[in-house]
Design a protein around this nucleic acid. Structure first.
Lengths: 186, 186
DNA sequence: CCTGAATTTTACTGATTGGTACAGAATGTA
DNA sequence: TACATTCTGTACCAATCAGTAAAATTCAGG
């Protein structure tokens, strides 16, 4: 039986969770070896560039996931309304109803964002662009669509911050529901 | 000529800026001594509890600033509409039109939030509560007011994340303007 | 000037940091 | 079996970490 994925790929989700929990600086190699079960030797074998390469790999993985599970439907103009609703559902699931941190957002406000500027920029730019595209398919003009897309993407990020700050994930769920209603009644 | 403030107080804004830029883990004592001009000895003289006490002092300072310059007007029901607009103006000024990080928000999504849970919780809770109070004075019922207050506070945080992520502070300014219009036409 | 407290400088500690080197174990292949 | 490649555990490195201790200095009040 052939292994479908290499071990490098298997480790990326674990790395993602560690960086989510501790941030870039906070995620020490000691913690990483603990959580992944890989010694330093293995870690540097798979990621010769060290922590920086690990984060880059995690960002690429996240980007790919969103491309497949979130952005693809938005970019397809066949049924824009249910595509947006589906995006909000996927988002709710991905962020575990507000109890999971957005790693890209967390990196964005950290000073290490300067080491991954493109990955961070692209993630949000693609989200806004595809969402705005779907909104245009619903009859909004270019600036309306872009403005609402920015509002929704920012609202999601803010809800994640707020939910975590006051320790009440319900705030995130409420936010998602609010945007859903707004789209449905569009 | 008597000095009005102790040097401890003078240092707190500098500390705030360092923590904003580097986060809790990223702000090493070396960086802090650099930026404040105080050696380790002086730092530990003023803040015997080390970095943790420094952050606590910064959070208290921020909290006091918002209480005076933002929340006070919201809590006073004499002119709720202009109080909210004033809050949005103060917020825009404080966050330098989106180019300044919200330290409380940044700490909230970091794992060090567990060391300052009350300060973080109180900051956002007080913001939401006073804003909801002002909205009730504008005729909204309790749940409407709370929901919109949460939406605005979260929207502000999200706009800060997004503005920084795609390196476009304009997004923050737009967000503030959007909420202003929404309040004015209420 | 003297005294004592406040403050700062300096030197130091032990622990931990990210990263390297490399021997050898495991694995796949012929 | 034999060989080459991939992978991993371990020891090690210099740098940096937060924090301590105490001498040196500054400074205000009497």
């Amino acid at each position: 039986m052939t292994r479908v994925v290499t071990e490098r790929l298997d480790v990326i989700p674990l790395l993602a969770e560690v960086f989510r929990e501790h941030g870039f600086e906070g995620a020490s190699l000691a913690i990483i070896t603990d959580r992944t079960g890989l010694g330093k030797g293995s870690l540097y074998h798979f990621f010769p560039g060290g922590k920086e390469e690990m984060v880059a790999a995690v960002l690429a993985d996240i980007s790919a996931w969103f491309e497949t599970n979130v952005f693809a439907a938005l970019a397809d103009p066949s049924d824009p309304k249910s595509a947006i609703v589906g995006m909000l559902d996927s988002t709710d699931a991905y962020f575990q109803s507000g109890s999971r941190v957005c790693l890209v957002g967390a990196l964005a406000i950290d000073h290490v964002r300067d080491r991954f500027p493109d990955a961070i920029k692209d993630y949000f730019a693609r989200w806004i662009d595809t969402l705005a595209n779907a909104l245009r398919c619903l009859g909004q003009n270019r600036s309306e669509a872009r403005s609402l897309a920015e509002e929704i993407v920012a609202g999601i990020q803010g809800a994640l911050v707020l939910a975590r700050a006051i320790d009440d994930p319900e705030i995130f769920t409420t936010t998602i529901r609010r945007y859903k209603n707004r789209i449905i009644t569009l």
